[in-house]
Structure formats: C-alpha cells, structure tokens
C-alpha cells in the first residue's frame, strides 16, 4: 500500500458516494447514465468474486464489500426507487458494442484461462470503457450538472492516482500488472477531454458544464 493507491481508492469511494448522495437527496437521477452504473456494478461483481477465494487484508475486504453495496444501491435508486426521473431517451448508448468486444478480449488476453481469471480480466477491460455511456449522454444532452461533473472528476482522479501507484510499484517492487496498466491508461485517456471541460467550464463558469 502506498499513498497513491490509498488516495486513489479514497477518490473512487468519494466519487461513488457523491453520485449516490446526489440521487438520494435530489430524489432524481436526471443526467445520470443508468447503463454506466449497471456496467460498474458488473465490473465490481466480476472482479470481487475473489472475496470468496482469497483473503488479502481487512482493508481490501471491507472496501470491496462497500464498493459492491454502493454500486448496487445506486443501480437500485436509478431503476427502482427514482425510476420516473431516469432519462432512458438520452441514455441510448448501445452497451452490447462494449460488452461483446470486452468479453471476447478477456478470453483472448488473460493471465490464466480459468473462470475467475477470465472474469477478473473482463472486469478490468470493462471498467476502462464503462464510463462511455455517461460521457455519451453528456455529449448528447450537451450539459452536465456540476455535481455530476464532480463525480466524474473524482473518478478521473482515482484513475490518475492509480497510474501513479503503478509507476511507484514498478519502481519500488518491480510489480507490473500489464493488463491493469494498459487498460488503466486507456481508461484515463477517456477522461482527458472531460478534465479539460471541467477546468475550463465548471470551475470558471456558473456551475453547469455545457459543451460547445
């Protein structure tokens, strides 16, 4: 555990909590892509199956359980409790275009051809593209509320800090998880355009992030 890894995990947690509280308090999931949230729930589910097979640390176990609970709670809010506010018209990204290639790739490029490893690899690849329905939705509607933008900022920070973590681990331990690093870099690239918009519009503007 290093400071980059720990702050990355905390930023990830903050992002998830920001989103959950936003929906909970406003009793609305307007502007939120339910598809991205389902994909994230699927990411956590397929990655954390090792909860049952290997114990890493109390921290590891607690964080996994918290991520899972929050991910499913958020999906529950969007599709059940506040489903009337769900904007399915704008959430029109075709997720099968992500799921099929990601599933195919996880069978081809993995560390071991075992069910758990393939599912772990699937979760890593899927996470790198799971935010696309949300970014697509923002592009389509042309704007994001500042709180949605804060959510995306913290998710992006989490990614950037994980990159720092991997550089640090490679430097200090010689640890290099090729699949995670390559997918992580791809994932972080998706946030770059958003970072630019965030700093030029949300921070200098009136709150809402509008696209040109």
């Amino acid at each position: 555990m290093n400071i980059f890894r720990l702050s990355g995990d905390v930023c990830h947690l903050i992002a998830i909590i920001i989103l959950f509280l936003k929906i909970w308090r406003s009793k609305s999931c307007a502007g939120i892509s339910g598809k991205s949230q389902v994909l994230f729930a699927l990411v956590f589910t397929t990655r954390y199956l090792d909860l049952f097979t290997s114990y890493i640390s109390a921290y590891n176990t607690v964080m996994k359980v918290v991520y899972l609970l929050l991910a499913y709670s958020t999906v529950g809010l969007i599709f059940f409790r506040f489903r009337n506010s769900y904007d399915s018209e704008s959430d029109s990204f075709r997720v099968e275009f992500l799921l099929v290639p990601v599933a195919g790739l996880s069978f081809l490029e993995n560390y071991a051809f075992t069910p758990l490893e393939i599912l772990w690899t699937f979760s890593i690849y899927l996470e790198s593209v799971a935010i696309l329905p949300q970014l697509f939705m923002i592009t389509k509607t042309g704007e994001a509320e500042s709180i949605t933008a804060h959510y995306l900022l913290f998710l992006g920070l989490y990614r950037a800090l994980y990159l720092a973590n991997w550089l640090w681990r490679f430097h200090t331990e010689g640890f290099y998880d090729q699949i995670a690093v390559v997918s992580g870099v791809v994932q972080t690239i998706f946030y770059c355009d958003f970072f630019y918009l965030y700093f030029t519009r949300v921070l200098r503007g009136s709150g809402k992030m509008s696209l040109p």
Binding site: R5, D9, H12, R47, D50, S54, I56, N60, M63, K64, Y67, Y111, A112, W120, Y162, N165, G174, F175, Y176, D177, Q178, A180
Partner: peptide
C-alpha cells in the same frame, strides 16, 4: 512480475 499476479488492488 509478468504472468500470474495476485490481485491485491481494488
């Protein structure tokens, strides 16, 4: 450590 890696990250 390329190859089988213990997945200790989240």
């Amino acid at each position: 450590v390329i190859g089988r890696i213990r997945h200790d990250e989240l």
